[in-house]
């Protein structure tokens, strides 16, 4: 049986109190639904003395829609997010991504903030303490070498949250609170390409709200996974595509599961103001394959993840562009 470390839990009821709690307790971690953190703590991946539960702060649990867009509290559960009428009507890719996370019980507990701040994953990391110890630990935690790329000096664990790409394609922004004051940045700026330090948050900083613009382009999300019923994405792709008279006038593609961070595909403008035909889809696939960098962090081969990422991007673009598409089974 796994051994759970002892810790105390604080339940601040305001953003200011949470900042204060975190300043007082240096060995603390934030927690929301705990569906990622509790598993990791049982695996000995961290021994915080205190957890600060963010779910008792009312403003973190609200979804508010206005003229300028929608603001989603970081502690809104994925079940509530996917059931929200405004979100369902305007952001189908976000609903698809939320519904693709785990099983119903994970979505009842898991939050959007926890999903965006999910720890990165690797076959050598998401293991029990005794397994990792027997394997000499690894660079990401307690060890010195990366078992995936032993000659390198960085961790390639994959960011595997489903929601980030579906938010990135809409240019979501996040509101961050912390001792140094509040700040608001594009979601893309939250992430760094380093599996051992993928979040650009200072100690004590946490997500308060996610902001979405009012007029999103049509969008969709799909993922490939090992266990069809519930599983993290081997690759997950979100596409937003605006078309006029058969021509693509706007395109955004974001990916998860393939790199240490979720990211927006760059150089996509070259595919705008063109019709979707076989050559166009080929160029899209090449662009995806060039920018993803899956490593051997999952049981499935990295090359499979690279190819499935480009295939999903093609499938979604075809469907959004109004082209007839074969039955989508990977979602």
């Amino acid at each position: 049986m796994e051994i759970m470390p002892r810790f105390d839990v604080l339940r601040p009821t305001s953003v200011a109190a949470a900042i204060d709690d975190s300043r007082r307790c240096q060995a603390s971690r934030f927690v929301a639904g705990g569906t990622d953190l509790m598993v990791n703590l049982r695996h000995g991946l961290g021994t915080p003395e205190t957890l600060i539960d963010l779910r008792h702060i009312p403003e973190l649990r609200e979804i508010s829609a206005g003229e300028s867009g929608i603001a989603i509290g970081a502690a809104v559960t994925l079940a509530d997010l996917a059931a929200n009428p405004e979100i369902r009507q305007r952001y189908p890719a976000i609903v698809a991504a939320a519904c693709a996370v785990g099983a119903p019980a994970h979505r009842e507990a898991g939050t959007i903030g926890g999903n965006l701040c999910l720890d990165t994953r690797c076959l050598f990391y998401n293991r029990s303490a005794w397994w990792r110890e027997a394997n000499d630990f690894c660079l990401k935690h307690q060890g010195e070498t990366c078992h995936v790329a032993p000659t390198g000096k960085r961790c390639h664990a994959a960011f595997s949250g489903d929601l980030a790409p579906a938010l990135l394609i809409h240019d979501a922004e996040i509101e961050i609170a912390g001792a140094a004051g509040p700040r608001r940045v594009p979601l893309a700026d939250l992430y760094a390409e380093d599996g051992a330090a993928h979040l650009r948050l200072a100690r004590g900083e946490f997500l308060v709200r996610i902001h979405l613009p009012a007029d999103p382009w049509p969008a969709a999300y799909a993922k490939a996974r090992t266990r069809g019923a519930i599983d993290f994405p081997l690759a997950g792709v979100a596409v937003a595509l605006r078309a006029e008279a058969g021509k693509v006038t706007g395109l955004r593609v974001a990916l998860t599961g393939t790199n240490a961070r979720p990211f927006l595909l760059t150089g996509i403008e070259a595919l705008e103001n063109a019709c979707i035909d076989a050559a166009w889809l080929d160029r899209l696939a090449k662009l995806v394959q060039k920018q993803v960098s899956p490593m051997r962090t999952t049981l499935l081969a990295a090359q499979y993840r690279r190819r499935v990422a480009s295939a999903l991007a093609q499938r979604l673009a075809r469907a959004l562009g109004g082209m007839v598409t074969e039955n989508s089974t990977a979602a």
Binding site: E2, G33, G34, T35, M38, V39, R42, H43, A79, G102, A103, P104, A105, H106, E108, A109, S128, I230
Partner: peptide, 21 residues
């Protein structure tokens, strides 16, 4: 090991939750 099998499912306020998490 945590969260993967559903054997520990309980209802909290009528909603399914995993007692191991």
């Amino acid at each position: 090991d945590g969260g993967e099998c559903g054997a520990c499912t309980v209802l909290i306020d009528g909603r399914p939750r995993l007692a191991c998490l």
